[in-house]
């Protein structure tokens, strides 16, 4: 049994198409992290069908809970755990509901405090499994539904410096992947194709009114135009080159905005999180940027970049330390976000 002075949190994540439960020790050590993915189900439809996602979550929630407890050797939750946490937003309402109700119910049954976690804070907190963060920091949060530059003046404090005005980076990867005939989610396969191709096509990056905001829908349209144009002329396109050129444009856009924000806000450290943080080209580019500005950098481990409950446990620990608990009446907040700086 773990000594009682250790903080053990059971965390739940179910905001999209992964059902996950994890036990995290002291906010930075994973005792278990069970993730059940529904990707194969939604691939039948070419994208997430919310009602199907909710049904899967409900069918898997008890199973992932028990496995997470067992793997972490939790036999007496009331005595061994310090708190229970769950994602309450942002995400699909029907999906969020399952993890949130499961987490609140678990807390009620075992008489444990409940902690509500912002999914985006979770993605950023995946960095805590690597090393502690120094402040002020700036986080680059790139996922399937969000692309944000976040100012972190201190621990557990997030303010939006810039955000996407249309598509998120991951969404752009998925949509362009679809144009190239890939199945959802296309990010990883796009990266593999890009590695085999040449970035020899110019896809322009949109300029935004606010220097720090992103826009990826124009980029997606220019890829679409390129492919259609070649189609009409019955020209063969090199899909690997398209993937490489698109990826280069996305990475450049992210780096350009991040660099502009570094110059203005002067953080001491950078954080990279979210599903797209698994992208190797982006990682290489941000590592280079951090070096150039002599900044400390923590990237979410690739295995923890996508949705998982361990990152929710890491974020929950920060709430625990700050005494931020929620009642059993807490509801989901599907469009939860941080506020602008």
């Amino acid at each position: 049994m773990t000594a009682k002075q250790d903080n053990l949190i059971l965390a739940f994540e179910s905001s999209a198409d992964e059902t996950s439960a994890a036990v995290v020790k002291n906010g930075h050590e994973i005792l278990s992290n069970i993730v059940a993915t529904q990707i194969a189900s939604h691939q039948r439809f070419g994208g997430i069908v919310p009602e199907v996602a909710s049904r899967h979550h409900l069918e898997w929630i008890n199973r992932v809970t028990k496995e997470a407890l067992q793997e972490a050797s939790i036999t007496n939750p009331a005595a061994q755990l310090s708190a229970v946490a769950a994602t309450y937003g942002p995400g699909l309402v029907g999906s969020l509901l399952i993890g949130l109700m499961a987490g609140k119910t678990f807390a009620m049954v075992h008489g444990l405090p409940f902690i509500a976690v912002n999914h985006l804070a979770g993605h950023i907190s995946a960095a805590n499994f690597v090393q502690p963060t120094s402040y002020p920091a700036m986080a680059v949060m790139v996922s399937g539904g969000h692309t944000e530059l976040l100012w972190m003046a201190k621990e557990n404090s997030f303010q939006i410096i810039g955000t996407t005005l249309d598509d998120a980076a991951g969404e752009a990867f998925d949509k362009v992947g679809r144009i190239l005939g890939l199945n959802y989610p296309a990010g990883k396969e796009m990266q593999e194709m890009a590695a085999k191709g040449q970035a020899n096509i110019h896809f322009p990056i949109a300029h935004t009114e606010n220097t720090f905001d992103f826009s990826f829908s124009g980029l997606k349209s220019s890829v679409l135009n390129y492919v259609h144009h070649a189609d009409q002329l019955s020209e063969q396109i090199n899909k690997n080159d398209v993937a490489a050129s698109f990826q280069k444009a996305v990475v450049e856009a992210i780096i350009e905005k991040t660099e502009a924000a570094i110059q203005v806000f002067q953080p001491v450290q950078l954080l990279l999180g979210g599903g797209v943080a698994a992208n190797l080209a982006l990682r290489t580019a941000i590592e280079h940027l951090a070096q150039t500005y002599h900044l400390k950098l923590t990237e979410a481990p690739i295995s923890l970049a996508g949705d998982n409950a361990a990152m929710i446990g890491a974020a929950a620990y920060l709430n625990f330390k700050a005494g931020r608990f929620s009642g059993l009446d807490l509801n989901t907040d599907p469009s939860l976000n941080f506020s602008r700086m």
Partner: peptide, 19 residues
């Protein structure tokens, strides 16, 4: 109601699973 059914079921399943 699909959502309603799931709320009750999530609660019932978790209580049953933990007691």
């Amino acid at each position: 109601s699909f959502t309603g059914l799931r709320i009750g079921a999530a609660v019932a399943k978790m209580i049953a699973g933990q007691t």
